[in-house]
Design a protein around this nucleic acid. Structure first.
Lengths: 178, 178
DNA sequence: CGTTGACATGTCAAAAGTGACACGTCATCA
DNA sequence: TGATGACGTGTCACTTTTGACATGTCAACG
């Protein structure tokens, strides 16, 4: 259900959008929390339209279709938000690699972590740039939208960067001693 | 491929294990990074055995089978670790909910976040307990195994708890003013 | 005029993951 | 003895996700 929820959320945040727009929005805004390809998004939108959660409108010169969330769609989104489930799913290949770190040589682990730290640092810079720009130029219908997620994303990215750096240093230290 | 990698990692960390053991290990150790049900684990183990990544041995009175990682399996794991991919996948329903927070009423969001903060606090206590015990009683073949992942898990859980608390406070403040 | 690249929508087979059903052992407790 | 619960392995239908293929428009540049 999460894909559906994410799409309903984006339609709420950004207003009427095309599948193409939503694909881009997925990459730029919600990518930190969820991913989806256009090959999954287009069929899902049509399914939701058939179920009355969104409306479709043929619009524009290039075969563009615009989707808009309905009352029912909003209700579905709201229900998902308020329905507390104990088991919220979480999958992260980065964390998996952290777990598996001892399977490789210490110097390899250090190199890997340093590289990761750089990747996270770059991502962090990007996210902080987005936040800085968000203050002036608001591309969002509701200016608060995505703000909490952006804040969380920044914190998580910073954590990952710091963890990678500190763990690299720690491994280096213990390898030097051992 | 991540399930396969996780299983190979667990077999490296814990030594020869049954599918049942691995299912339990998934829940207790790697759950923070990846999840899998036994219905996915059993077939995958047999598939890996057929491909020579693990060996099987019928062992024990209750139809128990013991799987052990092979050279090939270790090579596969190592290759995955060292192969740097730009796009590491990450999915989190918690982060998705963070994004969607503005779709519900402020007081509802505050309640939700407070609840989440408690859940994360409880999980954090559990993880810190595991870490404390890990020092004395080592149930791990290689005592360092899982340590980095545990550290990362603790940091991430703490971040989630703090974020939930702080965001709840912030929403409460701005709702009181607005 | 041709080509490149963003815009735009789709399908489809295959892989990954879920939840329910199914079967059987063994130890402990009432 | 009978029930409960941990141990232990599996299948199967269904949903979700991926990656490749397919098709076409439109604007800008050389």
């Amino acid at each position: 259900m999460s894909l559906r929820i994410a799409l309903l959320g984006l339609l709420t945040a950004a207003g009427p959008s095309s599948g193409y727009d939503l694909t881009k929005l997925f990459e730029s805004s919600i990518n930190n929390a969820w991913q989806a390809r256009h090959s999954q998004i287009y069929p899902e939108l049509n399914k939701m339209a058939a179920e009355g959660l969104v409306t479709v409108e043929e619009a524009g010169p290039r075969g563009r279709k615009t989707y808009e969330i309905t009352e029912e769609g909003s209700a579905e989104l709201r229900a998902w938000m308020l329905d507390e489930q104990p088991a919220r799913m979480h999958r992260s290949e980065a964390a998996l690699r952290a777990f598996l770190l001892p399977t490789i040589e210490p110097h390899e682990a250090v190199a890997l972590l340093r590289e990761q730290a750089e990747v996270h640092a770059a991502k962090l810079a990007k996210l902080e740039d987005i936040r800085a720009r968000r203050s002036e130029n608001s591309a969002w219908r509701k200016p608060t939208f995505g703000r909490y997620a952006l804040d969380l994303g920044i914190r998580q990215t910073r954590l990952l960067r710091d963890w990678a750096e500190e763990t690299a240093a720690e491994i280096e230290r213990s390898a030097g001693q051992g």
